[in-house]
Design a protein around this nucleic acid. Structure first.
Length: 525
DNA sequence: AAAAAAT
């Protein structure tokens, strides 16, 4: 989870961490050390007359063609250089530095000024929330994306927001804190809704929310498919009174349709992994339906979209879904994490890939943290699982066809570090936050569903982001065994402008060891 | 194809 992040961000200040400003019962912010001078983000004044403003009753189907970049052109692009971290003094502390989300570009609209928050006190949070941040989450100060995005979420008139930031840079905290701080405690009804692509992500986000909000009285509920043991027909479920609701699209829709999720007081709608949630091939229809349902019932609902990836197509579409929005984004060339070292391994055939996993990865994994092996299909997952299990290796697999009970169990075991190696479909490619994961294997490269000779760049980026949470070191091995694989790999390198080093020989122990040393995961003994 | 989920 994002948990450790701030505490460990700087080993040198580890001692200071314990003495971190703890909100005092009676004194609130008065006793806090004087915050550094806030950095003003200059705000360009842009008249944005967007044709999306007109009434369009059926926005579900309009296709993106017309230019929406007017706004982008009109608005000056501000490089938030003031927030750049100094990583010239590398060496020791490099290990737990914040990822390089230092080049977040902010584009704001109209005349709302935003001041980035150097401290959580700057955000005027309740003392209960500050307590949760410092004591439960063990945060010291906002990460860059938090410093910039939180004022945008919290400041009236609560404009919509599209926010892109690196994997593992603390996006969850942004919207969880955003939801918690906008709740009216006296109103016992749903006020914030967060939609996620998977059960696992929804549960994980709820866990963060409850931890962060531990000292508040705010109530929350998770809407994901129930396991059989707890099944209750929807008709017998009372209407939700929880103030914050997090869930997956299908179950949320089910509750709305059955009148179990009131939308009248929803004032904040969050899409986690927003590019996927609004993609044609993803959850676009469900997402837009939910948004429309809310708009029908609620007078003003702020829409907030977070992801590490927004390709041009999706960005274009999204810019017509939200209105009068602020944007934070990162160039794709600056998106891959420098702390995660990527490799390619040329394997003679498919069978060799299994051998690599069996003979190299398992051995290596013993000396490392945890490993996730990504496969393209459920079949491949089953095949690989079987091959390894027959050889006596302990491995677990998670994929969407498993029962909710099984999924929860496998994930819990992995999160509790009881299992070391987990095989997964792209179920876990996004958002899954387990800090001990420092090795990711692409058993199959992610490819575009429609054009299998094309990479799925976004999925690639998300997968490798499972290692290297909040700047930790990690390594990725891409197993290639055909010309097509080679070509896809080359395209990925080109797209992100990264060099992916080769492991010389697919079956050489030494080569893998060297790779891991280079990645900073192994040391000479 | 996989992700959700209802059928």
């Amino acid at each position: 989870m994002i948990t450790l992040s701030h505490t460990m961000a700087d080993t040198a200040s580890a001692t200071a961490a314990t003495a971190a400003p703890k909100p005092q019962e009676n004194t609130t912010a008065a006793a806090a050390p004087p915050p550094p001078p806030p950095q003003e983000i200059p705000v360009p004044k842009t008249e944005t007359k967007r044709w999306g403003d007109e009434e369009d009753d059926e926005p579900l189907e309009d296709t993106a063609t017309s230019s929406t970049s007017q706004q982008d052109k009109a608005a000056a692009e501000l490089n938030v250089e003031a927030l750049t971290i100094d990583d010239t003094k590398s060496t020791v502390n490099k290990y737990l530095d914040e990822p390089q989300d230092s080049h977040i570009t902010a584009v704001t609209v109209n005349d709302t000024p935003y001041t980035s928050a150097s401290t959580f006190e700057d955000l005027k949070l309740s003392k209960e929330l500050l307590k949760g941040l410092y004591i439960e989450m063990k945060f010291q100060k906002p990460s860059k994306i938090q410093a910039i995005s939180l004022p945008m979420i919290l400041t009236p008139p609560h404009k919509d927001l599209i926010a892109q930031a690196h994997n593992g840079s603390g996006k969850t905290t942004c919207f969880v804190l955003g939801m918690l701080s906008r709740i009216d405690l006296n109103l016992k009804a749903p006020q914030a809704l967060c939609v996620c692509p998977t059960r696992e992500l929804a549960l994980q986000n709820l866990e963060v929310l409850r931890k962060m909000g531990k000292y508040t009285e705010i109530t929350s509920e998770c809407l994901v498919p129930m396991d059989k043991a707890n099944y209750v027909p929807i008709s017998r479920i009372p209407p939700l009174s929880a103030q914050i609701v997090i869930g997956t699209p299908g179950t949320i829709r089910k509750y709305i349709l059955n009148g179990k999720l009131g939308l009248s007081y929803i004032k904040l709608l969050v899409f986690d992994e927003a590019d996927l949630m609004l993609d044609d091939a993803g959850f676009k229809d469900d997402s837009l339906r939910i948004k429309k349902d809310i708009e029908k019932k609620s007078s003003h609902c702020q829409v907030v979209l977070f992801s590490a990836t927004f390709n041009e197509t999706v960005k274009n579409f999204i810019s017509r879904v939200v209105k009068d929005y602020n944007q934070l984004y990162v160039k794709k060339e600056e998106l891959s994490l420098e702390s995660v070292k990527q490799y390619k391994v040329h394997c003679p055939d498919e069978r060799a890939k299994v051998l690599v996993i069996r003979d190299r990865i398992f051995e290596l994994a013993e000396n490392l943290g945890q490993t996730i092996i990504f496969v393209r299909t459920r079949n491949n997952a089953a095949m690989l699982h079987k091959a390894l299990a027959e050889l006596g290796y302990t491995v677990t697999t998670v994929q969407g066809a498993a029962t909710p009970e099984d999924r929860d169990k496998i994930i819990q075991e992995f999160k509790n570090n009881l299992t070391k190696v987990l095989i997964s479909t792209d179920l876990l490619s996004r958002g899954f936050d387990q800090q001990q994961v420092n090795l990711v294997i692409n058993y199959d490269l992610p490819v575009n569903h429609n054009y299998q000779s094309e990479p799925d760049y976004e999925v690639y980026l998300h997968r490798i982001g499972r290692a290297g949470r909040f700047g930790r070191k990690g390594a990725v091995f891409n197993l290639l065994c055909s010309d097509r694989d080679e070509m896809i790999m080359t395209k990925i390198e080109g797209y992100f402008g990264t060099h992916i080093a080769e492991v010389n020989s697919w079956d050489s122990d030494e080569d893998y060891n060297n790779a891991l040393k280079e990645a900073g995961l192994l040391f000479d003994s």
